[in-house]
């Protein structure tokens, strides 16, 4: 080491770090940093999520109408709904609608996903087509279905009566309660299948092919491979998709409102359409909000059941011992 280098090293050793400014120290303080980083997210959630939800719930406890902010009336809205047969009809419809469509959507969606999981020609093209009902705006497809269900111009009636001669009269799809309900169920299934099929297909593709090969060598038949390999390994994603599907269907509004507007005789009103009907065209904001709030417990229960009932699997947990 020569003289200048030695001098430099001595000088370096004699250097004393200046204390940080209070601002630097503040930002080095972890609780402050956490708070400041959380603030934008928390603020956005508060303004755009919590406020409307809170307002909706608050409205449910008031007698607000359009143009009148209303006053707190406690449980009056819920008490009057309790004695309202139309409300209970909408609850019944919502359950039938959700239950029946979910079963059909899952049966057909899983079947479609299994088909698409095979090596078929034009696979990408067929997958794109399957996704189509999901891409079209709901209102647009609702209008298409409304046309299909039309009493005079229905293509279904035309084919059955004029072409095949299997029926002697046109079907009144939307004119009677049960026919209207089934018509809506068909439209909802048509619209809901792509979501189920594509997500379950994604789930199927996470199952390694070697598991099927191992099962094949172990002597499992096609049905046994489906039941013993596919179903259990698909269960985690199936439960998530099921939860989402139940939520979407339970809160469905567009399709029903665009096709039947709850008719005939309120027989196809879901809780969501009834809530809107009472709140906006009927101008009873408080009562409409109460119907919407009444959906919350059902949704929470449905979510808990599907998510915890089907979603958690012991084999997915990574703990060393159990």
């Amino acid at each position: 080491m020569d003289a200048t280098a030695q001098a430099a090293s001595v000088q370096r050793l004699s250097f004393v770090r200046q204390p940080d400014s209070w601002l630097v120290r503040l930002f080095d303080y972890k609780p402050f940093l956490v708070a400041i980083c959380m603030l934008p997210t928390a603020g956005l959630l508060l303004v755009f999520l919590t406020y409307p939800l809170g307002l909706g719930i608050w409205l449910a406890f008031t007698d607000a109408t359009i143009g009148n902010p209303g006053e707190f009336v406690g449980l009056d809205n819920f008490i009057s709904l309790w004695d309202d047969p139309v409300f209970w009809l909408s609850v019944f419809n919502t359950f039938v609608y959700t239950f029946v469509t979910t079963i059909i959507k899952f049966a057909l969606g899983l079947w479609l996903a299994l088909l698409l999981n095979h090596h078929i020609p034009f696979k990408a093209f067929i997958r794109a087509i399957v996704l189509l009902p999901f891409i079209v705006p709901t209102v647009l497809s609702a209008i298409a279905w409304w046309w299909i269900f039309s009493p005079q111009f229905s293509i279904v009636s035309y084919v059955l009566v004029d072409r095949l001669g299997w029926l002697d009269h046109y079907i009144n799809f939307l004119g009677t309660p049960w026919a209207a309900r089934w018509s809506l169920i068909v439209a909802n299934v048509w619209r809901g299948i792509p979501f189920i099929a594509i997500t379950l297909l994604a789930g199927l593709q996470t199952i390694p092919p070697s598991l099927y090969e191992a099962a094949l060598l172990d002597g499992a038949s096609g049905w046994q491979r489906f039941r013993r390999i596919t179903v259990p390994l698909l269960m985690p994603i199936l439960s998530v998709v099921l939860t989402l599907s139940v939520l979407f269907t339970f809160t469905d509004f567009q399709l029903v409102y665009a096709i039947t507007r709850g008719g005939p005789f309120n027989s196809t009103h879901l809780m969501a359409t009834l809530a809107f009907q009472r709140a906006i065209p009927g101008s009873q904001l408080g009562e409409g909000a109460a119907i919407a709030v009444a959906m919350i417990p059902f949704l929470v229960a449905a979510t808990l059941v599907t998510y915890f009932g089907l979603g958690r699997r012991k084999w997915q947990q990574g703990e060393a011992n159990d």
Binding site: S210, L211, A214, R228, W315
Partner: peptide, 14 residues
């Protein structure tokens, strides 16, 4: 015959 796979192909849920 019985086969041992490169990735073992153990059934994860069993």
């Amino acid at each position: 015959i019985a086969m041992v796979f490169q990735n073992y192909a153990l059934y994860p849920h069993m």
